[in-house]
Computed example of a mutant assay.
Amino acid sequence: MSSDRRRESRMKSDVVRLFQTLPHDCGYFSGRIAQNLVIDPSAPHLDAVYGLALSRGFRRAGGHVYHPHCSGCRACVPCRVVVDAFTPDRSQRRCRARNADLELRLQPARYSEEYFELYQRYLGGRHKGGGMDSPQQEDFSRFLYTEWSPTRFLEIRRNGRLLAVAVIDICAQGLSAVYTFYDPAETARGLGTFAVLSQLDWAAREGLPHVYLGYWIDGHPKMDYKRRFQPLEVLLQGNWVAFAGA
């Protein structure tokens, strides 16, 4: 193949189509309407595109790589933690100490009855009435991973009993904290915080620069916690900048 044809082939392979979803109810604010931009899910080599998309503020849910694109609302702000500069605060150090008795194991992303039972209890206990609290088996796989995604499950156990699972995507740009579900009877442990701390530890060991936490939403009770992981960067007008919030 000539150099011109190779260049043309590379250019074509770098082009991906974006689709805009139809308006739908916002999952974060009652009464608001949301829309997303979605990378063509049938695009070839979506796995190769994903890392770059992550660094540009996109997020994965199942086989879809998306970015909020809502008319008149910019509440969802992409955020990531700078791994080599992260220092846990006093509350996070206490969380680590409180969970020092737990065992962590990295596993391939897959369905199991044990995972699904914990997932059901988590949604029923933490998101009751939110539309996800009666999942089917296919919902588990469809939402958490897909064939092309670079996903691993981080199991968190105590004496063999499964307490939590952190769903993590691994890219050259860093780790993406996709989702965490845990035993709702163990809320005193702060397992959500512990899962993020464990991912920061893992990223540091692997020399990865960032842990992507999805979208920060100012003042939202389920999303505002991300500001506690410092130094945090947010994506504003196409540039990653230091988080300026309190």
Rank of each mutant, 00 (worst) to 15 (best):
I170F: 14
N239I: 05
Y179P: 07
R93T: 05
A61Y: 11
H220C: 08
A188D: 12
A34V: 12
D25W: 05
H69K: 05
N159R: 12
V65E: 08
R205Y: 01
Q237T: 08
I170R: 09
N239E: 13
G63A: 14
Q137G: 11
N239V: 11
A177D: 03
A188K: 09
L37T: 05
C70P: 07
E103G: 05
A43V: 14
G27A: 15
R56P: 00
E206F: 04
G124S: 07
R94A: 02
W216F: 03
K222T: 15
V15F: 02
A61C: 12
T146Q: 08
P78T: 14
K222S: 15
A109Q: 10
D218I: 04
I168P: 02
D25A: 13
R6K: 12
R110L: 10
A100R: 10
P108A: 11
G57C: 10
P108R: 13
W202G: 01
Y119W: 06
D84V: 04
R228C: 01
Q20H: 10
V16N: 01
P221G: 09
D47E: 15
D169Q: 09
F229P: 09
Y182K: 03
L236R: 05
Y122M: 05
Y66M: 13
A195E: 00
S134F: 07
G124E: 11
D14A: 13
L54P: 02
P68W: 06
A100T: 04
R228H: 13
S2N: 14
P23L: 08
F181Q: 04
R59M: 10
A34F: 13
L123N: 10
C171W: 04
Y50S: 13
D133V: 08
E8V: 01
F181Y: 10
L162C: 04
A244E: 14
T87D: 07
R94G: 04
V65N: 03
H69Y: 14
L213N: 01
G131H: 15
V196H: 02
Y28Q: 07
D4F: 08
I33L: 08
C95M: 02
S30A: 14
E113N: 13
G57V: 11
L102K: 04
R105W: 02
P231M: 07
G57Q: 09
D169F: 05
W240V: 08
G31D: 07
L208V: 01
S176I: 12
